[in-house]
Simulated assay, not measured.
Amino acid sequence: MKWSVFTVATPDLNPEELAAAAHEAGVEGIEWRFKEIPEDVLQEGPSFWRHNRCSIDPRGTEEDWLRFDKVAKEYNLRSIAVVPYLTCGDIEGTERVMKAAKLLGASFIRAGIPGYDRSETYHDLYKQAVRYLESVERLAADYGIKALVETHHKTIAPSAGLAHKLVSHFDSRHVGVLYDPGNMVHEGYENFRMGLELLGPYLAHVHVKNAGYRMTKSENGRNTEWIGEWVPLSHGIVSWPQVIADLKSVGYDGYLGIEDFSGTYPSKEMLKHFVQQMQEWTK
């Protein structure tokens, strides 16, 4: 297996700093965050989802985008993905991401799928997603870039099973699944090996992070609630040694991509800790 980093997790580093730190840590691949930084947050400190300094601006030119290809190659790293925050049905935006990914020599992007908040039925949202992915599959075939559905809480694909239900309509050469066990702590837990066996050829990439639960009182103060929160890799609900063993059992030999939101370590130290931990667990 190989190691990668999704730059959402390194918001304080610019692309050049990230590439240098990744190379030093032993990371081999980069998943570039594809999201503009709003003008009104530029004076804020770095943050994962707002002022993230390691992001490709979708509004940029090809010359702007090639900066990221250049810094990756300078440190002998591979740009494996361009990762946007697409809305289901946004074909124009999806094609723009495909163009950026092809320019950088990346292998995949993340597709947009509907969120689930009880305002629309799962069945209606599922139909919307299938229609969108039909168009995405055609784009993926044209550009030679695979589109991935991520297992993610608060969407219609929180588990391997529900992600598989979506992607099983499509050719696994063009549409696949980004498997994220950390997200599945919040919602969507299934036995890891069973889910991986189900995904089969659709398993395309894996994100590495962990989460746990914290007990709190409800708003009325009379009931107990459990809130999911991000924690260090070795301290959460996900048993990463077990996940790695299950990945090996299905023959997965791709990238494991760090996406640690726990804030336990500064970015550079986090990358080093990630590689050291993965090397220990994959022996």
Rank of each mutant, 00 (worst) to 15 (best):
Y179E: 07
L166D: 04
L203H: 02
R50S: 13
Y252F: 12
A100M: 07
P38D: 05
V250A: 04
P232W: 04
K99E: 15
A106K: 06
M270C: 09
L178G: 00
A22C: 07
L247K: 01
D40M: 12
A160R: 04
E36T: 14
E95Q: 09
V175R: 01
L247M: 08
N220Y: 09
S267E: 14
Y179A: 06
W65Q: 12
V206F: 04
K272G: 12
W32G: 06
P201S: 04
D246S: 06
E74R: 15
Q128S: 07
S172I: 08
V250F: 02
F274Y: 15
M278P: 11
T264G: 06
K73P: 00
H174K: 05
H186F: 15
G45S: 12
L199M: 09
G29Q: 10
Q128T: 07
T7I: 10
K2H: 13
M194G: 06
S135A: 11
W3K: 09
F274C: 08
E24T: 10
L148E: 07
R67M: 10
R214S: 08
L162E: 07
V175F: 05
S135D: 14
H123Q: 06
D142I: 08
Y143T: 00
A147S: 13
Y265I: 08
A106Y: 06
P266S: 07
H164R: 04
R67W: 10
A111V: 13
L148C: 07
I237N: 02
Y85L: 04
I258G: 01
A21I: 13
P84F: 07
A141Q: 15
V231C: 13
N210G: 03
H273A: 05
V206T: 08
T224D: 15
V149I: 11
G257H: 01
S218Y: 13
